[in-house]
Computed example of a mutant assay.
Amino acid sequence: MLPIIKKAGVVASLLLIASTQAGTALAFDNPINIPAAQSKIGATSALLGSAVAGTRIVAVGLRGMIIYSDDAGASWTQARVPVGSDLVAVNFPSPKLGWAVGHGGVVLHSRDGGATWVKQLDGVQAAELALRQFQGSGAPEAAMLVEREKNLQAGGGTQPFLDVYFESETTGFVVGTFNRLFRTTDGGKTWTPWMDRTDNPGELHFYSIRGRAGSLYLTGEQGAVWRFDKASQRFVQAATPYKGTLFGLVVTDKDTVLAFGMRGSLYRSDDQGRSWEKASLGTPAGITGGVALAGGNVLLTTQAGAVNVSRDDGKTFQPVKTSRPMAYFGLAPLDDKRIVLVGAEGVRLESIQ
């Protein structure tokens, strides 16, 4: 069920109600306010996202786990993390500067390649930012956005962020459930709600955000893809024929867009999402991760433990043999011949033949 924890945005808040005597319950400590506990088994625990920071590998997972390796995975060190929330995605636009996001609406930032982290934002703060942004706004949709935000705030105000993407060291986005979209242009010192810049009246969840060379795309529920339109400064719909959940996407060197998700669903567009054609991995397993390599190849991973490579810009895929398959939740390229895979049994490095 771990891909569901990550991708479907179901907030399993780890509420453990214990009683020391009849009728007396221990108070709940919100994980967004509790540092992650130290563990010796981080590299073999469930991990949900990975990235490469220069030559360093960084992986994130449950209960605030962040680990890193400077020797290609031979040894791992646990980072100092200020939250115990489940972390689901991590992104490094440069070797030193990185961001991670997860449940509780947390946004973490590192300035030392992932060794130490600080909290830049959480769900409570994000809800307050959204209300301040839209209350009193003259925008036509402002009243609706305020009402929706108050409803979310009443439910705890800690909607999860499910992905993060930085175009540069200063400009980036975090996205999540119920149309959550925030942007920063100062490296996360301040965040601006962008929920009014999406063609998403049904408040569908956003599961991923990716881009390349100025292009930017979102994926979400009901087969939805959104493309950022520079002229209108909005994310406009570029929907696929699919009606299920799309977990993520890949933008290749040739500007081809591949959107993937549940039940082996895979769609390909070479015209910025205006039209789509169905591609296939030949599996009903959910496709949980994807990446474009520097050499032009595309890799996709599945919940069933498969790794597949395309050498023709995503038109066809062939299986890649791995040493010890597991349920994969994400991947990152270490170089053009090796990849970092994270999943149910931790983190592994594999060679691509």
Rank of each mutant, 00 (worst) to 15 (best):
K150F: 10
N151G: 15
E149Q: 15
A143G: 11
Q135N: 10
R148T: 07
G155K: 09
F134A: 01
Q153G: 13
L145S: 03
M144C: 12
E147Q: 13
L121P: 03
V146C: 04
L152T: 06
L152S: 13
E141I: 09
K119N: 01
A127Y: 08
Q125R: 13
A139S: 08
A127T: 14
K119M: 06
A143N: 08
N151Q: 15
V118W: 04
E141G: 08
G156F: 04
K119F: 02
G123V: 03
L121S: 04
E149M: 14
K119G: 06
A139H: 06
L131F: 06
V118F: 06
F134V: 04
G138L: 01
P140C: 08
A130T: 10
V118H: 10
T116K: 05
Q135G: 07
W117C: 07
D122F: 05
G157A: 05
L129F: 13
L129P: 10
G123R: 00
L131R: 05
E141P: 04
Q153F: 11
Q135S: 10
L131V: 10
M144Q: 14
G157V: 02
S137V: 00
A154L: 12
Q133M: 07
Q153S: 12
N151L: 15
A143C: 05
G138D: 02
G155S: 10
P140D: 12
R132I: 02
G155R: 08
T116C: 03
S137A: 02
Q120F: 10
V146A: 01
G155E: 09
K119Y: 03
W117K: 06
D122S: 07
G138F: 02
Q135L: 05
A139M: 06
E128C: 07
